[in-house]
Computed example of a mutant assay.
Amino acid sequence: MTVVGIDSHKKTHTLVAVDQVGKRLAQLTVEATAKGHRQVCTWLGQFDQVLLAIEDCRHLTRRFEADLLLAGYAVVRVHTQLMAGARRSARERGKSDPIDAEAVARVALREPDLPRAELDGPTREVKLRSDHRRTLVRQRTAIANKLRWFLHEIDPGLAVPSRGLKRLCVLDSLEADLAAHHGVVAEIALDLVQDCRRLTVRINAMESQLRQLVRELAPNLLAVPGCGVLSAAMILGETTGAARFKSKDAFARFNGTAPIPVWSSNTVRVRLNRGGNRTINNALHMAAVTQVRRDGPGATYYAKQIAAGKTVKEALRLLRRRISDRVFRALLADEAARDNQQIIQTLPQAA
């Protein structure tokens, strides 16, 4: 087995092939274009069995990964933190694209359970729409904050409900009130109201599309108490396939709900994991808070931990981990259902 490490940039890809003991065999640098990708596939033909390891920078490598997967190669992703350790332990000092590519390859030799790259599926659309919706919400929040100061300058007695600038009826009322005022401040405030309206319409439309997608892709995930459409969309988009995790514990390490061991000798201790995927972690936290506020197994478990002497934060962390395990099972069930549906759809064609 030959392992090929890839260090990718916006304009070039550098590949270094190593054998099973980490000895460098060959090196190649190509342009990050379709022609360069074809050149890589031709170059890889000199090796019998190849495993491609690529630095996990999907904003740079998504097209390259897709071309390699379509060509029939196995591709694993290497986190940049793992690369740093391999680079420090190498004999060759310094930092360059070949050094980084060789570090990627040596990590793939050392770590047998790296996540495998897959072609984009329906969850890719969920992630894109969810990320775009959050961007629109941030834009609307910035505009609404600025608008409130202008409204206070125009009329300090003008009452605007809390979080009211995301409601179309409130924006209609503000637009009618501003029409009676004159001056540059009123003119700018009117423009900001119209911007809030435009963004709100787009946000509502995006949420409606997400609701339809998530209901089709993840009905079991939506059945988890406290997990709404937006939280489920974030989890789906960031997980990109629960089957790639070997266990619920690996999924918990991925989303940051598994604590980090910090013990030696006979005293077993752990500390809070502040790493992991914070988007999924935030979605799990909101689900935990929702469960605590409602009657059910989550609230009962939380009360039990509080009675045992846990602090509020500690009890929430424990509940969040339980929700992570429940979410992992739901994701696996939804993926199995989708796979079965695809098999059923292909049966008439095969017949």
Rank of each mutant, 00 (worst) to 15 (best):
I306W: 01
A117S: 11
G45E: 15
A32N: 05
P297Q: 01
V126N: 08
K246I: 08
Q212M: 09
A26T: 04
I235V: 12
T200E: 11
A287W: 00
T12F: 09
L60W: 05
Q139K: 11
F328L: 00
V76M: 03
F245T: 00
A303S: 12
D325A: 07
H37G: 12
I260E: 03
G5F: 01
L222Q: 07
P297E: 04
R88W: 10
T2R: 13
F64R: 06
A303W: 02
H285F: 04
R124P: 02
S265K: 15
A330V: 03
E111H: 14
A243D: 15
L119V: 06
S324M: 00
L319N: 00
D295V: 07
A84G: 06
A108G: 05
A223H: 02
S173P: 12
R148T: 06
L15G: 03
D131P: 01
S96H: 11
R244A: 05
V201Q: 10
G36M: 06
P219K: 07
G36F: 04
D191R: 15
G22H: 13
G5R: 03
R326D: 12
P219L: 02
L217N: 11
L119C: 05
V50W: 11
V104P: 11
R124W: 08
E187K: 14
E335V: 05
R88D: 14
C227G: 00
G237Y: 03
Q342N: 13
N277L: 00
L190G: 11
L284Q: 04
R116M: 01
V50C: 11
T311L: 05
K127D: 14
Q305R: 15
N273L: 02
W43V: 09
R271G: 02
F150A: 12
